[in-house]
């Protein structure tokens, strides 16, 4: 009995320490957004009275609203389109059998190992030739076919009861109809997990937007933040940076908070077998 109690206490201590480490930078961020840049640099660890000043500066000195909108536009576009493409593809790969399909799927999976730097320059040349530089499409289009998401849906379909599909076929349902009204509702948590994953990736994407979004009015939030904190000889307003980081984190936080249950469920499906 005592052994079990010690075990249980240790467990709580362990989880408490881990949780504290995880959360600490967030607490720090929330405290520092109320302090002036000088106080932040001096390591002040108490709530100050500069929040309104920082907040005001964040909106007046940067194109925060516009950049937020750009980020939202891109992330939503990528999420919706990539999920449609990936779920259809995974369904096609998993449910139907025909020559060559496994081969194509293997190529898809193998491509996950290709470093982005291999693609970067040719992609840039292509996007540029299409005249898409400085448009949201330059970021959205290359992200639509996400091999990882195809893999993800493929895994969760592995345990999907084929019988349901077949009995629907016998009832005369057409293939797309089966996908839409039978398969899709059952994969709700997989879709939620994929949506979080996809949105998060697009929202936080840095290197590619850095390359293709060249004008101020097209920037996304990560570009805004990294641009403001680059090591230049000009002073950096850390108060503003704190506000920007918080604002850029909130949407992902909310999405995760509300879809958390589905997220874990969806991941479960994805890793069976």
């Amino acid at each position: 009995m005592t052994n079990r109690k010690v075990n249980s206490v240790l467990k709580y201590i362990f989880i408490l320490i881990c949780a504290f480490i995880s959360v600490f930078p967030f607490i720090w961020m929330l405290i520092e957004c109320t302090n002036s840049s000088a106080d932040i640099l001096a390591g002040k660890m108490s709530i100050g009275n500069q929040f309104m000043v920082n907040w005001h500066n964040a909106f007046s000195q940067t194109n925060l609203i516009g950049d937020f909108w750009n980020s939202l536009k891109i992330a939503t576009g990528v999420t919706v389109l990539s999920i449609i493409v990936a779920s259809l593809a995974a369904y096609g790969f998993q449910i139907y059998r025909s020559r060559g399909k496994n081969w194509v799927y293997s190529i898809f999976i193998a491509s996950m190992m290709i470093p982005f730097s291999v693609l970067m320059i040719p992609l840039y040349r292509m996007v540029s030739k299409l005249g898409l530089i400085n448009t949201a499409w330059a970021v959205i289009l290359p992200s639509i076919t996400s091999v990882f998401l195809v893999f993800f849906f493929h895994q969760s379909l592995e345990t999907f009861p084929i019988d349901t599909i077949e009995s629907a076929r016998i009832d005369g349902a057409r293939e797309f109809r089966i996908f839409w009204s039978i398969v899709l509702p059952q994969l709700r948590s997989t879709f939620a997990a994929a949506a979080i994953y996809s949105f998060m990736g697009a929202w936080n994407n840095y290197m590619w937007p850095l390359i293709v979004l060249q004008s101020d009015d097209q920037k996304t939030l990560p570009l805004l933040i990294s641009g403001l904190s680059a090591n230049t000889n000009f002073s950096i307003d850390y108060g503003v940076i704190m506000i920007l980081i918080i604002i850029s984190t909130i949407p992902i936080f909310l999405i995760f908070l509300f879809l958390q249950k589905y997220f874990v469920q969806g991941m479960t499906g994805a890793n069976k077998g």
Partner: peptide, 22 residues
């Protein structure tokens, strides 16, 4: 007049893409 973050990289990228229109 446009400001560019990570300026030198951006200049080099636009030149390397070689698309005069951009």
């Amino acid at each position: 007049v446009q400001t560019e973050g990570d300026y030198n990289t951006k200049v080099q990228t636009v030149l390397s893409a070689g698309n005069k229109k951009n």
